[in-house]
Structure formats: structure tokens, C-alpha cells
């Protein structure tokens, strides 16, 4: 289980990185950040990049900052950065809650937020966060920079709107407004495993009434997404157990679950309803 040969190109700046990518992407070149998904797939010889453009040495990519109402997460910000809240509001707290579900402690020291977004695994927690909270992805190339909405970003299992010569330079996550509540729940076979289903819920609490309701699911379909029919059931309502159960049922009915030899669509459909209910319970804590 040894990777195939490749040429290694360490980049020292974002400009150098995109220049290298422009040169090598057409020759099977790929970006490596944390590598916690890429290196295993290379070891299993499922991926054979001929060139790796290593962005770990790009100083500006390691920053996380708040800017214009967004939390801006650079390309090499590690999962472990979120072990403590990166901003004092509800988003910071939510990300800290979510990060403990991502793989294991040593993996989180190395893997990156943006890497998860670029990899777009259906079971990625960060992808669910991005899809549910409406993140914007900043893609950079020698041609310039463009911003991609979450609704456009995910294009199926491990597929994104990123072009071959583009690098995901940063992700902009909108801060949750004051008074927001958010909860997350996932079910996996063992601690640290890929989830069989997960849900993220968020809303603004307006004197007991739920506003700007967001319900997202991950690990259920080919990509994470918001379940708008369920959100509509809660918008402007009081968060009662019955209302939440109805929303959970609407989620179960709306999803088109992935199946595998272990897991039927029926099981995932049930499970995602449970995940929604438990995510609400988490948010209520």
C-alpha cells in the first residue's frame, strides 16, 4: 500500500500555488493540503496524481478571520483550529461542536476545512455546514478569482464546481446572527467513522418563534443539502416537539437516500429523521 510516483512542488505563496496548478493540472496535477483523504486514496492506488502542489507552506492560507459578516477560513486551516471557538458567536460554538465528530484527533491536526469542501465527500461534516449555512467558496486561479455559492458548489459525490486549474483559496461562512440557535447530530457505527446520517439545524430565536430556519442533511444523499420543505414547516412557528417531529418526518420523506450493502434507503430515511430531532435537541441544550 504505497503511493505511485509523483513530482512534489511546494508552493510558498498563493500566486505560486496557482501558477504551479496552471502548469501541472493538465498533467494530472493536484493540490495537497492536509492530505488526510488524498494520501490514503493514493496509498490504496485509487488516486495517481503525477504532480502534487503542496500548499502547506503558504502562510496566508493558514489564517481564519472575521470579515464583513463572514468567517473567512483559509485553504490550510486545520480541523483542530475549531477545537476551541474561532469566533465568540453562535457560529464559533457550532463549529466547535461539529469538529469533534470529524474523524479522530490526530487526523484533525492535519486535515483542513477547505480540503473537506474540495473533496466533497457526501459524509463530510464541513460540507454539511457549508451547504446549510450558505457558505461561499472562493476559487482562485491564474485567471483570477471567483466566488461560488454553496448551492452551485456541490455537483454530486466527490464532485464540485471547482475547475481543474482552480484552487479553493478560502471559504466564507456567514456568521449566525445574535439570538441564533444551532444544533448538530450524526450517527456513525464507531466514534470517528463516517456518519450514516447527519443533520444540522439553525434558526434565529425571535421571542420563542423560529425565524430563518435552516435544516440540512448530510451522509444521506449524494451531497449535503437544505430540506426546504421541512424548513417551511417550522418557519414562524414555536419550536414544539410536535412541530419538530413533523419537520423531521418531512425530511425523511423528502430525501433520496444512498444505499449500500449494509444500509437500505429505508434505514437512512429513518435515521435522518432521528438526526434532525436530535440536532434540535442539541440546539436546545
Amino acid at each position: 500500500m504505497k503511493a505511485g510516483s509523483f513530482e512534489w512542488h511546494p508552493a510558498r505563496s498563493a500566486d505560486e500555488a496557482v501558477a504551479l496548478l496552471a502548469e501541472y493540472a493538465p498533467q494530472d496535477g493536484r493540490v495537497i493540503a492536509g492530505g488526510q483523504s488524498l494520501v490514503p486514496s493514493m496509498a490504496l492506488r485509487l488516486a495517481f496524481p503525477s504532480h502534487l502542489i503542496d500548499i502547506n507552506g503558504v502562510e496566508e492560507f493558514s489564517r481564519v478571520r472575521v470579515e464583513g459578516g463572514d468567517l473567512v477560513i483559509g485553504a490550510c486551516v486545520r480541523h483542530a483550529a475549531f477545537h476551541a471557538p474561532v469566533e465568540p458567536g453562535p457560529l464559533g460554538r457550532l463549529l466547535t461542536q461539529v469538529v469533534h465528530n470529524i474523524a479522530h484527533y490526530p487526523i484533525r491536526q492535519r486535515g483542513t476545512f477547505c480540503g473537506s469542501l474540495a473533496n466533497a465527500d457526501p459524509a463530510s461534516e464541513w460540507c454539511l455546514v457549508a451547504a446549510t449555512l450558505g457558505a461561499r467558496m472562493v476559487a482562485r486561479s491564474v485567471r483570477g478569482e471567483r466566488v461560488i455559492e454553496a448551492s452551485e458548489w456541490f455537483q454530486g459525490i466527490m464532485t464540485t464546481a471547482l475547475e481543474e486549474d482552480e484552487l479553493l483559496a478560502e471559504v466564507r461562512l456567514p456568521l449566525l446572527p445574535a439570538g441564533s440557535r444551532a444544533g448538530f447530530y450524526e450517527f456513525s457505527r464507531r466514534a470517528g467513522d463516517y456518519a450514516l446520517a447527519m443533520a444540522l439545524v439553525a434558526w434565529r430565536d425571535d421571542g420563542g418563534t423560529m425565524r430563518e430556519v435552516r435544516i440540512g442533511t448530510g451522509s444521506v444523499e449524494v451531497q449535503p443539502r437544505r430540506i426546504t420543505v421541512a424548513e417551511a414547516l417550522l418557519e414562524g412557528r414555536v419550536a414544539s416537539p410536535d412541530a419538530i417531529a413533523a419537520a423531521a418526518a418531512a425530511v425523511s420523506a423528502d430525501v433520496d437516500p444512498l444505499e449500500d450493502i449494509h444500509t437500505t434507503a429505508d434505514y437512512r430515511r429513518d435515521l435522518v429523521g432521528t438526526a434532525v430531532r436530535r440536532a434540535y435537541a442539541q440546539a436546545g441544550d
Binding site: 464507531r190 470517528g192 449494509h262
Partner: peptide
């Protein structure tokens, strides 16, 4: 947790530690 699973063509599906699940401390 642990099971070596095969698909109907006899292809083994439990060939990594992400698929063959051994108990952890948790």
C-alpha cells in the same frame, strides 16, 4: 461490529480499516 462482507459477485467489501470495524476505546 466486525464482518467480512462480500457483494453478490464475490467482491470483498471489507478491505480497509474504514470498512472492517474493530472496537475502539470508545
Amino acid at each position: 461490529f466486525e464482518e467480512f462482507v462480500y457483494d453478490e459477485r464475490g467482491e470483498p467489501l471489507s478491505v480497509t480499516f474504514a470498512d472492517y470495524l474493530m472496537p475502539t476505546a470508545n
